[in-house]
Simulated assay, not measured.
Amino acid sequence: MSDEALLKVENLRLDLVVGSRRFGAVKDVSFSIGRGETFGLVGESGCGKSITALALIGLLRAPLAFGGGRILFKGREIQNLPGSEMRKLRGNAISMIFQEPMTALNPLSPVGRQIAEMFVLHKGATWHEAERKAVEALANVRVPAPDRRVKDYPHQLSGGMRQRVMIAIALACRPDLLLADEPTTALDVTVQAEILELIRDLSAAQGTAVLMISHDLGLIANMCARVGVMYAGRLVEERAAQEVFRAPSHPYTGGLVASLPLLGARASHGRSRLKEISGVVPAVTAFPEGCRFNPRCQARTEICIAEDPEETALPRGGRVRCHHHA
């Protein structure tokens, strides 16, 4: 990993706009990713992971809106780029594997043409050259009979096949930054391993930075050097992956790690019960005062209810946002 930050996000705020009111769906989120580094973003559904990724490539749509902060890519601010400039980056220097392969592909176009478009638009290839490269791209993601599958429409493919097509599109132009939102959700275990190896090889070979978004903590531990933990639109902890899983500092991170099943773990009276975090993530329009995790936190005190905690640097590196961090 290079020390240079390819992507730097500073105090990002994303708002949910309801009439004349604005609610902070994502607030003061900051992180950076170096060349060749894989940075993980974890948290429960609804915590703001996916909309953070969409904001990085200018794909936010109403009622969500950019509320403030800076997004720097290769030292250049991109949060306010005109649409034409952002389209030159999107799919070329910055690519995204979307979470929903069933709806992300154009149902009216063969998948081969959708891949070929990337080479025509961003690499100046002819359609004949691009169609040949599309076959190679499908072969790289282990699609069987790729020369035949390029002619198929999305509805002719299974969910796992569509996911592989999405990954082929994202990797086609060998991007500098890859945003991977649950990239292996619809894939079986053996194909998951192959796709992750492909992403790992791309990162190692040309220094591609990867933002890996996942609910799968095992995948994050295996793939990522650093991990950011999000809760209710806030980045509550960011540290080296091994430190997060060895000794979490934020109570929410501790709850996530404690909920992981341990191979061979049993109680004396039979199979042990998995731990869980009580309650649910609050709605964007109903975030509590003070620390947003306080209604679910077993360690809360009066200050947690009254005051929003500041970010604190940790002695072994990283940072945490908690009044009573470990």
Rank of each mutant, 00 (worst) to 15 (best):
M96L: 09
I97L: 09
V120A: 02
T103A: 10
M102D: 08
L72Q: 08
A93K: 09
S84W: 10
G69N: 10
L59T: 14
E44S: 10
I94Y: 01
G43C: 05
P101N: 07
K88H: 14
L41G: 00
L60F: 13
N106Y: 06
G83T: 04
N80I: 01
G34N: 15
P107T: 06
A53W: 00
R61V: 09
L64Q: 05
L64T: 10
H128M: 14
Q99N: 09
K74W: 00
G68P: 06
I115N: 01
F119V: 13
I71Y: 06
R87A: 08
L41N: 01
G69Q: 07
K88M: 14
K88C: 13
L54M: 11
T52D: 15
Q79M: 11
Q99G: 06
G91W: 00
C47T: 15
L54Y: 12
L108T: 12
I78W: 00
I97G: 00
R35S: 13
S95I: 05
H122Y: 07
I71E: 00
R70D: 15
E100F: 05
Q99K: 14
L41D: 01
L105F: 10
A62D: 12
I57C: 14
Q99C: 08
M86T: 06
P101G: 04
S45D: 11
K88V: 11
L72Y: 04
G46F: 03
L108Q: 08
M96H: 02
F119W: 12
L64Y: 12
P63Q: 08
L89K: 02
G75A: 13
T38P: 02
P63A: 01
M96Y: 04
V111M: 05
A65L: 07
I71S: 01
L89N: 02
K123A: 14
G58A: 14
E37W: 07
P107N: 10
G69E: 06
S84I: 14
N106S: 02
I115L: 03
A116L: 13
F73K: 04
Q114V: 09
G91Y: 01
P107S: 08
V42S: 01
L72W: 00
N80M: 11
L56Y: 04
H122Q: 14
L64F: 15
